[in-house]
Design a protein around this nucleic acid. Structure first.
Lengths: 99, 99
DNA sequence: TGGTCATTTGGTCAAGTAGCCAATTGTTCT
DNA sequence: AGAACAATTGGCTACTTGACCAAATGACCA
């Protein structure tokens, strides 16, 4: 068997849903290069810090990222690096049909 | 470089978004085993056929699946099989924290 | 041609999501 | 203690989504 069926379909879908937003996906890709604090991620996506923080809450809720508070800053890191592999496959498909 | 940055982030995110719904993800997983007509997919997810059809429109719009009309039926097939690989990785993570 | 079956489309409504601002929490520095 | 900074939370509004029903399309069969 390749794909398991005893895991809730919505639990799986929630992970995709969390990645289904340009800002959140951009942050996950940035985290692929190493941990970043919220203010650094804010620069990546360019929106209000409160918005960034809420996006990070979504990513944390599904276990895609992990938060580590150190001093005044909170550092986020990627817990599911295989996400980047899928992004590459998606990119390949998008390139093939000419973005 | 591992992840390209000249491809629109929202184009990528739209693919994740399309997968971010239990019914759509279930259909994609079912299509991983081979092509299926809409009525077969309807049995997989159990909702109204019009709802299933709209979900399939979403998947088709982002290029995840392909439609082929043969006689009265429309057969859908999976265009991005690497999706299944990511689902497996997601499953592994979900299992590790005890679904 | 008329009927039936598979699928799609249009419309409506309830529910969910994203963004911003303002206010709050918690930490460091003086 | 009080100022300054990083991050989170609450609240509001605008927008998007999902589900169902009803109606339309399109293919096959009698």
């Amino acid at each position: 068997m390749t794909v398991e069926h005893d895991i809730s379909m919505s639990a799986r879908a929630d992970i995709f849903k969390a990645l289904g937003h340009a800002a959140r996906l951009a942050m996950v890709i940035a985290l692929g290069k190493g941990e970043r604090c919220v203010c650094e991620l804010q620069e990546v996506v360019g929106s209000d810090m409160s918005t960034v923080s809420k996006h990070l809450t979504v990513l944390r809720a599904v276990g895609l990222v992990e938060a580590d508070k150190r001093g005044k800053q909170v550092y986020y890191s990627l817990k599911l690096p295989c996400t980047l592999g899928f992004v590459e496959c998606v990119d390949k498909a998008l390139r093939e049909r000419g973005h």
